[in-house]
């Protein structure tokens, strides 16, 4: 359980990278390993950092234009033929606009990957319509769908390889903004297993994706000497690591979940169900409180909508 880089506490010393940048790098090596991997995009290749892929594999890059539904169904055709298609866009457009096509491809567990950046408040100034607060809700309700939400650059590289090898429909979420790289490059990552980043016995905190480092800083602020708060990195939202989660809450007896998603339909609700069914404990969710966003920098939006480290820290303080 040795996941954190040595200097993980010192934010200023950590490199800052967006997870979409990791995808851009990793998809090239994934394609080198497997000739069947193809990438589809809907007029946003720069935003998904596909420039290297386009250069190295022009014949395996399909630019579909502004046509996300067409993109998803073409991918499902490609996968039926035997290719491993990755469809790429912003989360607001894919799965936001092609959820029905994705659902159809999931019925027979077809092998295609949905990779989407700019989730949550990440489009910032572009405003509510291109932001995405409901993608987990849409995707998790589709049977067979796997959802991964890596926490940093290093984990995204690993995850890109893992999802290319795993069969079936998989959704991977990426950030636009640069965040600290705080996980070890060779940290053991397994789809469907939580990672215990910090140990504690008074409160379990589960964070996912963009919220993991933000939550880590909040924990360090409140639990200065350590040992009170247990922090789990939920890089896989579906399937949930039932045993890993229950093991922790059995010990701590309290649970806080942090996500950059509407509290209606996010990861928090599904975790709460598992806990309620098996070992009910006090549970609270920090997320977007059933509201759309607005224009503004993502940092300011996190602050205003109370999902930044200050808001998380005050929740932790209140609970322990």
């Amino acid at each position: 359980m040795d996941y954190l880089l040595e200097k993980y506490k010192n934010e200023s010393e950590l490199e800052k990278m967006a997870t979409r940048e990791a995808f851009g790098v990793a998809i090239v090596s994934v394609a080198n390993e497997n000739d069947d991997v193809v990438v589809l995009n809907a007029d946003l290749p720069g935003s998904l950092k596909l420039n290297d892929f386009m250069e190295v594999f022009p014949e395996r890059y399909l630019q579909i234009g502004v046509a996300e539904q067409n993109m998803a169904s073409i991918a499902i055709g490609l996968s039926h033929y035997g290719k491993i298609p990755f469809i790429t866009s912003f989360a607001a457009f894919s799965p936001g606009l092609n959820i029905a096509q994705i659902r159809i491809g999931s019925i027979k567990n077809q092998n295609f990957k949905v990779v989407s950046s700019h989730y949550g408040f990440h489009v910032g100034p572009d405003g509510a319509s291109a932001q995405m607060e409901s993608d987990i809700a849409m995707m998790k309700a589709i049977p067979n769908m796997v959802i991964v939400n890596p926490a940093d650059y290093n984990q995204t590289k690993t995850m890109t390889h893992l999802i290319s090898r795993a069969k079936g429909p998989i959704y991977m979420k990426l950030t636009r903004e640069k965040f600290p790289v705080f996980l070890k490059e060779d940290a053991h990552t397994e789809i469907g297993k939580v990672q215990k980043l910090l140990s504690g016995d008074k409160l379990t905190v589960i964070a996912t994706g963009s919220m993991v480092y933000e939550t880590l800083q909040a924990v360090l602020e409140v639990d200065k000497d350590g040992g009170k708060v247990e922090l789990l990195n939920l890089h896989t939202i579906k399937p949930l690591d039932k045993e890993g989660i229950l093991e922790s809450v059995r010990k701590t007896g309290k649970l806080l979940i942090v996500e950059e998603h509407n509290i209606w339909g996010g990861a928090g609700e599904s975790i709460s169900r598992i806990v309620a069914e098996n070992h009910p404990v006090f549970t609270k969710i920090v997320g977007i409180y059933d509201t759309f966003g607005e224009s503004g920098s993502h940092r300011k939006l996190w602050e205003k909508y109370e999902i930044d480290r200050v808001a998380i820290a005050s929740q932790i303080r209140e609970i322990i």
Partner: peptide, 27 residues
């Protein structure tokens, strides 16, 4: 324009005087 707490959003939204449709998703 495009700033937090302001009227003029990065994409038009109903509620801005004179705007007749919420957009941002093409088509």
């Amino acid at each position: 324009l495009r700033k937090i707490d302001s009227l003029l959003q990065g994409h038009p939204k109903l509620g801005i005087p004179g705007v007749e449709n919420t957009s941002g998703l093409l088509g």
